[in-house]
């Protein structure tokens, strides 16, 4: 299994990480190497095996519907990259 440079670009965009053009080939090789490792799973037939999402055989615990959180805006925004009037700022979003 190998990943092409075009696929690397596509994946990188899905993951929102820019990649320098010089590095694309290296990523393609690295990722292909990992997929070769992963391909060992194909040695066995796992048809009918129940997928295991979690090691714990437990069910979700429910929380009582109570407001427990005070306003902590000042603390939580203290180290934010860009804030104005209590809002986090990002470059203009066009809908």
């Amino acid at each position: 299994m190998s990943i092409t440079p075009t696929e690397v670009m596509k994946i990188a965009h899905l993951a929102r990480m820019s990649i320098h053009p010089d590095d694309v080939e290296r990523y393609a090789q690295d990722l292909s190497g990992i997929l070769d490792l992963v391909a060992h799973m194909n040695q066995i037939d796992v048809q009918g095996v129940e997928p295991m999402a979690h090691p714990l055989d437990m069910s979700q615990r429910l929380r009582a519907d109570l407001v427990t959180e005070p306003n902590q805006r000042e603390l939580l925004q203290r180290h934010a990259p860009a804030v104005e009037n209590g809002l986090f700022l990002v470059p203009k979003v066009i809908e």
Binding site: A82, E84, N85, G86, L87, F88, L89, V90, P91, K92, V93
Partner: peptide
């Protein structure tokens, strides 16, 4: 927000 979008 002068060409920025504010997030609440």
């Amino acid at each position: 927000f002068h060409n920025m979008t504010g997030i609440d």
